[in-house]
Amino acid sequence: MERVPILKIGDILLVSIQVDMSDQTAVALQEDLAERIVATGCHGVIIDITALDIVDSFVGRMLSTIASISRVLDAETVVVGMRPAVAITLVELGLSLNGIRTALNVERGMELIAIDRADDHDDPDDDPVPEPTASP
């Protein structure tokens, strides 16, 4: 089984998904990320899906779960680089990716996290606290 590499850049973990992931690979990524967040103490996660030509409900759910898990571990997740065709398809599929923050590209994603961290204490109730989700 292939594993998606996780890079640490400063206070941010960068995951660039470059392969057509099997469901197992997606679940493994979810687990790996949780471990790396705790191990590194990073406060931001950027998931770059520029290379993904589809996002189905399984990957969508994985993204939501990652966002929820990282929030519990005090890290903000931003999904970046979603292609227009993928976004249009997700809307049609009925998947709204609730609770996931998105940005057009890695750079904007990093800005978003930086702004968030800058005044985290301002309004901590920005997003509703999600139910803790157990890894399947």
């Binding site: 030509d53 589809i54 996002v55 189905d56 409900s57 399984f58 292609r83 227009p84 065709a85 993928v86 249009i88 398809t89 049609e92 599929l93």
Partner: peptide, 14 residues
């Protein structure tokens, strides 16, 4: 079209 390709591949994946 690219959008239709994406739609049908996504449907097939589901």
């Amino acid at each position: 079209s690219l959008v239709d390709q994406t739609k049908v591949v996504t449907a097939a994946s589901e």
